[in-house]
Design a protein around this nucleic acid. Structure first.
Length: 986
DNA sequence: GAGTTTGAAACT
DNA sequence: CAGTTTCAAACTC
């Protein structure tokens, strides 16, 4: 055992070979304690290294080992480690003479300990250094019977512990042999020293995973993996031990083993346990040391060299620090890369990180990953440098898998942990959105944005906890604070591990991440306090908006956002990004509740009373939904179907979403409002009334039930058809043409419709629904995850101001859509397509030709509103096609509007319950028929599946439906779609 | 902000 | 399925 005192603190290394427990326990021998002078300390340490025997009293083997050890170390040293070592050497005055090679260094030490004895600092340093080197080297001294286990990385603390125990047990065996067994515990994951087994004499290098003989390679891995994950438990342990330092802390671990913990960078932590003689840093220093150790690899500031030094007072070596920084950068970089799906994003992030790191050692990457707050906390407690840890964690998404040691059950964490996954999702989403988005975000946001992205990886908790303003670089500070706020708003449950438990939490996470991103935008400095919803909206909106041409509305939004992010958010929320309710008796579990109907949780902004529509009541909510759906399968389906002239395919021109017309599925039943007030759902949705409506005295500015304008539509349709006929081959061109026409006529959503007098064009509802750009999804706040609509809201909101309340389903024109198909669409099954969310906003303000336009001025009914549907994946997969109409419905939150392809003249065969209503085209004969019966509207959507309708319809007309469905998936992702829509608008 | 109106949703 | 009640948003003052 070697004990070094420096700076008044005593660091003791207990190197005693196993079997010498007697020495360690109880009373440290005075020899060890004092080690005489610094020189002695060093000498002793060296001698013992790994079982340094100061005295001859130690078994002869010790001497042997001591001699051999250095060499072994040397041999094992990886270049990286060597570099580090060298740097360290150079930096330390004492070590100046040391040759780059560890062996030489050791040899010298051994040879002439006195040289170094000069300064106490040296002693401590040397003592430290040596071990570190050893560790870095991954010294294996088989000769010494020392067992070195390297586990590539593991996740769970348990495994680690197990291994550790195993190793310790092995050590014991060795001890029995009277062999000087030397177990070095390299805990890559833990960076923390395992103080535990003070009683044990064996030094173990513990690696979390399967024990692998340490090799140079392993060492390297270690370095890479180093990302220390803070394991709270371990930390605690350490602290305890530290506190106890002279005492036997080993309660937890019976074994008397002193562990060497090597940081990735080869910094060695010596957890000496031994009762007395172990190398301890001063109690005070220890905690820091631990932190340092953990951080070491990452944070230059906290160099590991001196970790062992009693007071930590050892001067910080800048050079070393830089080296470490380099390491860190690399590590971070790698970690980041791992996480990023998008190559460019990676690059950006990388650069960003590099920049940051170069300037400041810390911590930008704070947000990166951690699933577990617990991990973070310890670090926080420790104080600064934590950032580095966090960063390391950042690796996490992946690194966790490999490295995570930490611990406690959570350790599994990252993988299992829902949040991270959520994060991953988010990232994916981003990526999916397109490289552009990613880059865009990053660029636009700048470093901050990068940070935020990383935050996606991490849990909110981490963020909140982990990111300390202190750690954060100044530039980042703002964000960080922001992040924190968010976290505070929605504290994560203690059990991060709970996957199931926290779906909504995940959502929150998602939201957070999103929000963070959105906030990052330079423009938006807005504090997180904003409701979650807006955040989501912002986030999604941003990417989308970028991609597609800005619609007027969008541009407005952007401008506003730029000017003041808050405004933007507010706007979003105001715009209906989120539904608000003020339910008093329904407990927000009935369709009366807009939030519930939309498939979203009520939020703080809601004024509801006795609200049950909260994440914590997910089960109840789900039941309620089921009940409602049992009554009406389409209850949660979009209420409004929007007929889209151009299919998403026409990305270029079509701005496509301009809906030629939209109709409320069920139609309204207004008697007094004359369909001129928001009481009227049709009006509220900004759509004209149709035959399906049973309204009396309809004066809906968006289109009367009479269908005056129908003629126009019909003509338009005809022209379209003709074009199609002409260019059957070129669908695209055809579509474009059609689209153009449509746009001309309809460009302004409502207005166009209005001008046309809202006559319903026969619409074929295509089962196809494609998701509008995520942008639209403003509304979603908290989505029901579990329920069909789990992530639903993620995407939906359309940017339109016009669109307000109701969600519309966009039914893109199928290029080759047959009327038949359309007909089918209307079938009740049709509603089943809840998936679809949005349509693009109308490009232009409505022409004010008609009185309708006037209506806009006075009151703008929300024409198009997109909604988020549950498809959690929506984000990730821009377009999701759901084949079965029925199923989807429940999932949909509230999308009320469906976009339908314009073109159809086709008769509507089926009078779907809800769907038929919407789709009904007065013009079309069939519709007329159906329309004739007012009750159609009332007809609840038949539960029968699309298939049935399909079969019937297809049989009757064509197999078009099937065709469509199949084709649907092919629809371009949101992005293109969005573009199209925009383009067309202009 | 309180009260009224309105029509959808829920219930019978 | 029709009628009634309940409910909450929209609207008015």
């Amino acid at each position: 055992m070697l004990r070094c005192k420096s700076h008044g603190s005593v660091s003791t290394v207990k190197l005693t070979p196993s079997g010498h427990e007697s020495e360690g326990e109880g009373n440290p021998s005075p020899e060890h304690e004092t080690c005489g002078g610094s020189s002695t300390c060093v000498d002793a340490f060296l001698a013992d290294t790994l079982e340094i025997c100061d005295d001859d009293s130690v078994s002869p083997e010790c001497s042997k080992q001591s001699a051999e050890l250095p060499q072994n170390v040397h041999g094992s040293c990886t270049s990286t480690n060597e570099n580090i070592i060298e740097s360290n050497k150079n930096r330390s005055d004492h070590l100046q003479s040391v040759s780059p090679l560890a062996s030489a260094f050791v040899d010298r030490f051994i040879a002439d300990p006195s040289e170094h004895s000069d300064s106490p600092d040296l002693q401590s340093q040397q003592a430290v250094v040596l071990p570190q080197r050893l560790c870095s080297v991954c010294i294996s001294t088989e000769e010494m019977n020392s067992e070195i286990h390297v586990s590539p990385m593991k996740n769970s603390f348990a495994s680690e512990a197990t291994e550790w125990l195993n190793s310790s047990s092995n050590a014991e065996k060795d001890l029995k042999r009277d062999e000087a067994s030397f177990l070095v515990n390299l805990s890559l994951k833990d960076d923390k020293p395992k103080m535990a087994d003070e009683g044990k004499e064996s030094h173990k290098i513990a690696l979390d995973e399967p024990l692998v003989p340490i090799t140079t390679d392993n060492c390297m891995d270690t370095d890479l993996l180093m990302a220390p994950q803070v394991n709270q438990n371990k930390t605690d342990d350490v602290s305890l031990k530290l506190d106890d330092k002279g005492k036997n802390v080993s309660d937890e671990k019976p074994n008397n083993t002193s562990d060497f913990c090597c940081n990735s960078q080869g910094i060695l932590q010596i957890c000496a346990a031994g009762e007395q003689g172990v190398l301890h840093s001063s109690p005070q220093s220890l905690p820091e040391l631990l932190q340092d150790v953990q951080v070491v690899s990452h944070d230059p500031d906290v160099s590991g060299e001196f970790i062992l030094s009693a007071d930590n007072q050892t001067p910080y070596d800048e050079d070393t620090a830089q080296l470490q920084r380099g390491m860190r950068k690399r590590l971070q970089f790698e970690a980041i890369e791992n996480h990023k799906t998008d190559g460019e994003c990676k690059k950006l992030i990388k650069n960003f990180i590099c920049d940051i790191t170069s300037e400041e050692p810390l911590e930008i990457s704070l947000h990166m990953n951690t699933s577990d707050p617990s991990h973070v906390k310890p670090i926080e407690a420790s104080g600064m440098k934590q950032g580095s840890q966090l960063i390391s964690q950042g690796h996490l998404c992946k690194s966790v898998d490999r490295v995570d040691v930490s611990g406690q059950k959570k350790g599994d964490s990252s993988v299992t942990d829902p949040r991270p996954s959520g994060i991953g999702l988010h990232l994916n989403t981003v990526g999916s959105v397109g490289h552009n988005n990613c880059s865009m975000m990053v660029q636009a946001l700048g470093k901050d944005s990068c940070m935020e992205e990383e935050s996606f990886l991490g849990n909110s908790e981490q963020i909140s906890q982990g990111s300390n303003s202190e750690l954060v670089s100044p530039g980042l500070t703002g964000k960080i604070s922001f992040t924190l706020t968010a976290n505070s708003e929605k504290p994560m449950p203690d059990n991060t591990c709970d996957d199931t438990g926290d779906k909504h939490l995940q959502n929150d996470m998602m939201e957070l991440t999103i929000s963070s991103i959105s906030h990052q935008t330079p423009l938006s400095t807005k504090p997180i306090e904003c409701s979650m919803q807006p955040r989501l909206t912002d986030q999604y909106v941003t990417p989308c908006s970028l991609k597609r041409p800005l619609s007027v509305d969008d541009s407005k939004l952007n401008l506003s956002s730029q000017s003041s992010p808050r405004k933007k958010r507010k706007k979003a929320s105001d715009n209906e990004g989120q539904k608000r309710c003020s339910c008093k008796r329904s407990k927000c579990l009935k369709l009366y509740c807009d939030c519930f109907a939309a498939g979203t949780f009520c939020s703080e902004v809601c004024g509801c009373q006795q609200c049950v529509n909260r994440p914590e009541n997910e089960d109840t909510i789900h039941e309620a939904r089921q009940q409602i759906e049992s009554r009406n399968p389409l209850a949660f389906a979009p209420k409004v179907v929007l007929y889209v002239s151009n299919p998403p395919k026409d990305s270029e021109e079509s701005t496509g979403t301009t809906p030629s017309s939209a109709r409320h599925k069920r139609g309204c039943n207004c008697k007094k409002s004359l369909c001129l007030k928001k009481y009227c759902e049709c009006y509220q949705a900004g759509v004209g009334c149709s035959f399906g409506c049973r309204c009396e005295g309809c004066k809906n500015t968006f289109g009367r039930k009479d269908g005056c304008a129908d003629i126009i539509e019909i003509e338009h349709m005809k022209s379209k058809e003709q074009k199609l006929v002409r260019d059957p081959s070129a669908e695209n061109s055809k579509e474009k043409l059609v689209t153009r026409e449509v746009n001309l006529h309809l460009s302004p959503l409502t207005p166009s419709i209005q001008s046309s007098n809202g006559v319903d064009v026969p619409k074929s509802l295509l089962p196809i629904t494609y998701y509008a750009s995520p942008e639209t999804s403003a509304s979603a706040i908290q989505c029901y995850e579990g329920s069909p609509g789990s992530p639903m809201n993620m995407i939906s909101k359309s940017t339109f101001e016009m669109a307000r309340e109701d969600n519309m389903l966009l039914v893109p024109d199928d290029q080759e859509i047959d009327f038949d198909i359309k007909v089918d669409t209307f079938s009740p099954g049709w509603d089943g397509f809840p998936d679809i969310c949005n349509f693009s906003p109308l490009p232009n303000p409505p022409p004010s030709n008609d009185g309708a336009s006037v209506s806009f001025k006075t009151k703008e009914p929300k024409i198009l509103q997109t909604r988020l549907f549950q498809g959690s994946s929506l984000v990730g997969t821009p377009l999701r096609w759901r084949s079965s109409p029925v199923t989807p419905l429940p999932q949909f939150g509230k999308s009320k509007i469906l976009l339908e392809p314009d073109s159809d003249n086709g008769p509507n065969k089926s009078v779907g319950d809800d769907a038929p209503e919407v789709l009904e085209d007065p013009c079309s004969p069939i519709k007329a028929v159906t329309a004739s019966s007012p009750k159609q509207k009332r007809v609840s959507p038949p539960k029968r599946l699309f298939q049935e309708t399909r079969s019937s319809s297809s049989s009757g007309l064509r197999s078009g439906r099937k065709f469509i469905l199949q084709s649907v998936p092919s629809f371009p992702p949101l992005t293109p779609y969005s573009k199209n829509s925009r383009g067309s608008g202009t």
